[in-house]
Computed example of a mutant assay.
Amino acid sequence: MTSTPPPPPRGLLVHEWIAPAGGSENVLEAMARAFPDADVRCLWNDAPARFRGRRLSETWLASTPLRRNKALAAAFCLPTWRMLPPDDFQWMLVSSHLFAHHARVRSSAGDVPKYVYVHTPARYVWTPEYDPRGQGLAVRSVAPLFRALDRRRAAEPLAFAANSRFVRERIAKAWGREAVVIPPPVDVRSIADARTWDTRLSDAERRTLDALPDLFLLGASRFTSYKRLDLVIDTAERLGVPAIVAGRGPDEGALRDRATRARVPVEVIASPSDALLRGLYRAASVLVFPAVEDFGIIPVEAQVLGTPVVTGPVGGQLETYEPGVTGITADSLTPDDLAAATSSALSLPPFDGAAATARFSSEVFEERIRHFVTG
C-alpha cells in the first residue's frame, strides 16, 4: 500500500504594501510562484488583481486614510507588524524595504521562523543621503529611535538575503548581520522574445516608436527627484543628441518643463505600457541611468534587448552590467562625465543581451529563493 506523502510545510509571504506597479511587487510575485501554496500578508493591497486567487490578508491600516500617506503610516507600521494574527505557519519569507522585517507571527510552537529578503534597510532612516524623504527635520529627529528599534528587530530573523552586494554592505553596517546576495528577478525570457510583447503594442504606440530618431538617449525611471532624470537631458545636451524620458511619478510636470527648455529635442513619455517601454529599450542607442539604486532592474531590462547602459559610480546598478562590454561607468554624475561615458557607450560593439542577463532571470531567482528558505 502506497502511503500518501505529507503536505508541504505551510508558509507565509510578508510584504510592506502592494502597489499596482513596482520592483518589490515583482519580487513578491516571483516569491509567490516559488511557493504557490503560501499565504500573503501585507499592510494594504492597492492591486487586488495581482494576487487574485491567493489567500491574502491586509492589516488594520488598509481601512484607514494612512494607506494614502506612506510617510505618516511608517510609525504605525512598527506596532502593526508585531500584532499579526497567530497561525501555525512553519516559516515566513519577508520582502522588506521599510519595516516588514519587524513582522512577527506566533504559532502553537512559538514564533514562526523568519527569513528576510532585503531590498534595502529603510533609506530615509539609514541612508537619507540617497532619499530626500529622510532629510526633513521631522524624520531626522526620530531617526535615532527608529534605528535603535530597527537594529533590535534585525536580530530576530534566521537569515537575510540582499538584492545586491551594495545592499549587503548596508545590512552589515546598519544591522550587523551577514546576508547572501540573491539578485531580484527580471523577466529575461519574455523581454528577449519580442513576439511576446510586440503584438501588444497599440497603433498609437507603434506610431510613437516609428517616429523615434535613429540616435537617441533613453532615461527610464520613476519621475521623482532622486532618480535624477534631469541629468539624462543634461547629457543629451552635452552630446547634441535627442533624448526620451519615460516613466511615471510626481515630477512629471517639472520634467516636461525641463524638456521644453532643452537645447536638443526631448520627449517625455508618461506611464508607458510594458510593451512600449520594451520598444523604447530596443530602439535606444544608450540607456543613461543616473540614479543610485539598491539594485537597478531597468538597466538589466535594457541590456536584454542589446542596449548598453551608462550609470554613475555608486550603487547596486554597477552589479548589473559588464563594464566595457554591456555598459560604461561614469567617473561622476556631472553632465560632463556622464556625456564622456555615454560617448564611449555609443562605440561599444553589439552584444548578446539574453546571454549577458541570463543570471538575472526569474527562473534563477525562484530556484535561489526556494533554496534560501528550505535549504
Rank of each mutant, 00 (worst) to 15 (best):
R50P: 06
G134M: 11
S361G: 00
V266S: 06
A30R: 01
G11C: 02
G353R: 15
L93N: 07
A254L: 08
A174F: 04
A192M: 08
R261I: 09
L217N: 05
E16D: 15
R248D: 09
F166W: 11
A62E: 04
S332P: 06
A275F: 09
L318T: 00
F99P: 14
P242M: 11
V181I: 07
R368H: 14
F372R: 13
Y124K: 13
I18V: 13
H101M: 12
P48A: 05
R261W: 06
R165S: 04
Y130N: 06
V266R: 10
F289D: 01
V268Q: 02
P335A: 12
L28C: 03
P7D: 10
W44Y: 01
T80A: 10
S24A: 04
L348P: 07
A243L: 09
P290V: 13
S3G: 15
T307E: 03
H101P: 14
G22C: 11
P5K: 13
G249C: 00
D337E: 06
R151C: 04
V373L: 13
W126H: 05
A143K: 05
H15I: 09
V266L: 10
G375S: 04
I328Y: 07
P9Y: 10
A259P: 01
P250S: 04
N45P: 03
P48T: 10
Y117E: 04
A358L: 05
R55D: 15
A345F: 12
R54F: 02
G53T: 11
D331L: 09
V286Q: 04
G240D: 06
P185H: 12
E156I: 07
P250M: 14
Y115V: 00
A355K: 15
R256H: 11
G316Y: 08
